[in-house]
Write a protein that binds this DNA or RNA. Structure first.
Length: 153
DNA sequence: GCCAACGTTGGC
DNA sequence: GCCAACGTTGGC
């Protein structure tokens, strides 16, 4: 069992949007970064837990917990010329981009903001999210960091 | 809206 | 394989 953090812009897809999905599950499509793809395709396991992070908004931070559901599969949006994440270099016979399905678990009692996380720099050393210049949208979370952050809730 | 950080592209 | 140009991310 591993832990992850996944970013989403709430204007695009928020944690409430996930909650309101018919099966509270959403394919995490549109990721076009190789490192993030490799985490989703190769490292995630069915049942892994995920911090749901809101980026590019008033208070960037962790707002809820989700869960990885099922195995990896090709990101279908890469094949659709009308999709904003269309990638002509991704061939359905040899897909370049993969996704996971993410299921709602529960909201945090309160948002744990990026600012607050940065205030715990010592305990959260080497946590990718608080490293300078971090732009990765899918990243692993160490078990001790996961527990520490939930301890702030 | 600004801009630093960083990933990708493509000419050479 | 190098690296300048360019595009994107995302905090502020």
């Amino acid at each position: 069992m591993a832990y992850w953090l996944m970013k989403s812009e709430p204007d695009e897809f928020s944690f409430d949007d996930l909650k309101n999905r018919p099966e509270q599950t959403e394919p995490w499509d549109g990721v076009r970064n190789y490192q993030a793809r490799n985490f989703m395709r190769d490292a995630m396991q069915d049942g892994d837990e995920v911090f749901f992070y809101h980026s590019n908004c008033d208070i960037p931070g962790i707002v809820g917990i989700a869960r990885v559901r099922g195995e990896t599969r090709p990101d279908h949006t890469a094949f659709d010329p009308d999709d904003k994440h269309f990638d002509p270099k991704s061939d359905p016979d040899k897909p370049r981009w993969y996704l996971r399905d993410i299921q709602y678990v529960r909201p945090l009692a309160r948002t744990i903001s990026l600012k607050e996380l940065k205030d715990h720099a010592e305990a959260l050393q080497d946590f990718a999210l608080v490293r300078r210049g971090n732009r990765l949208s899918v990243m692993p979370v160490d078990a001790q960091h996961w527990d520490y952050i939930l301890g702030l809730e």
